[in-house]
Amino acid sequence: MTARFFNRLATFGVGLAITGGVVNSTLYTVPGGHRAVLFDRFRGVIPTPSGEGTHFLIPWVQRPIIYDCRATPRNVPVETGSKDLQTIAITLRILFRPKPEELPTIYQNLGQDYAERLLPSITTETLKAVVAQFDASELITQREIVSQKVRQLFTDRASKFGIITDDISITHLAFGKEFTHAVEQKQVAQQEAEKARFLVEKAEQHKRAAIITAEGDAKGAQLLSDAFKQAGEGLVELRRLEAAEEIASTLSRSPNVAYLPSGQNVLLSMPVGAR
């Protein structure tokens, strides 16, 4: 009795396991931010993708292909030529995602690795078309315009393949060695020119200051000459009297100087001990 019970229990367990496996094989789950394309062995790709959650399928007949529909960044480097035939190395950063309703078509035409198949070619085509419209120097001075043209052209091209671009930006822009060297030489020449112009302006200011000083000295000498001409001998006599007054004042403060009336003998006026 006991052996028969365990045999039945084992048979039930096997049947339950088989049933569970069959039920599990008829279900598939789509994670958040993803979509599923269902491939049917008899009908091909189902035109309507499956959304998030758990769905049913026919085992061994249908197979789900899961796609990530969240924004994904990708850097694509491209080397191209400018309008003035300069070699330009550009790296474009693309933030993209597939259109959910276009996933069946994307799977049929490009497969699951659609980004690797499509983005490099679109990026190369877009950058070559836009960069060829500008000179190397304009790529720097008009970078915003270049980015806008690249963004517009890339978005139009990608949308034809069912891809949405949330953001496109130029993250790297480099020129050839010859052009870089020429730009450096130009910068040095401009700095030298600015230095030379400063020195010329400085010398001109010194020259103007010297001229103004000389003109002032000449004006002062002319005024003094005119004053002498107008005053005549009176001014000379005044200067002589002022000089005599200054000498007399100096002598009056000296203790060893004696003053005698005019015409007297100096020896008579001296003390006896001094004779």
Rank of each mutant, 00 (worst) to 15 (best):
D217L: 10
T250V: 08
A10P: 00
I18E: 03
E184L: 13
Q264E: 14
D135P: 00
P98C: 03
Q86R: 15
P73C: 05
Q205P: 00
E138C: 02
V76P: 01
T180V: 07
A136F: 01
P59M: 11
E52H: 02
F96S: 10
I58R: 15
E246L: 14
G273K: 14
T250K: 12
R63I: 00
T105C: 02
A17F: 15
V78K: 08
D113A: 13
P77L: 04
R35D: 06
E237V: 12
L238W: 14
T26A: 14
G111T: 10
I94C: 03
L92Y: 05
L110A: 11
P100M: 06
L224T: 12
V30I: 11
T91W: 03
I168Y: 01
E201Q: 09
S252I: 10
G51K: 08
R151I: 02
K229S: 12
S50H: 11
F161T: 00
Q264A: 15
L57M: 15
N75F: 02
A10I: 10
V266M: 10
P98R: 04
L268Q: 11
V150C: 04
I164T: 06
A210S: 09
A89E: 13
L95S: 06
V61E: 09
I212K: 09
P31E: 06
R253M: 09
F154R: 01
S82R: 11
Q112C: 00
L153T: 06
A182P: 02
T48K: 14
I122C: 03
L224A: 14
L260D: 12
R157E: 03
N256L: 09
I90Y: 05
S262N: 07
R97I: 03
S82F: 04
G263R: 12
P59F: 12
E245I: 09
A196W: 01
T91R: 09
P100W: 01
A227M: 13
K99N: 06
F134Q: 01
R253A: 13
R240K: 11
E102F: 07
Y107N: 13
G162H: 04
G33E: 07
E184M: 09
A209M: 10
I211C: 01
K128I: 00
A17H: 05
W60G: 03
Y67E: 08
F134L: 06
T80W: 06
D40V: 02
N256E: 06
T165H: 01
V76K: 04
Y114W: 15
N265F: 05
Q152K: 09
Q108D: 04
K177I: 08
R157N: 06
D40S: 11
E79K: 15
L119N: 02
T87R: 15
L110C: 05
R43K: 12
F228C: 02
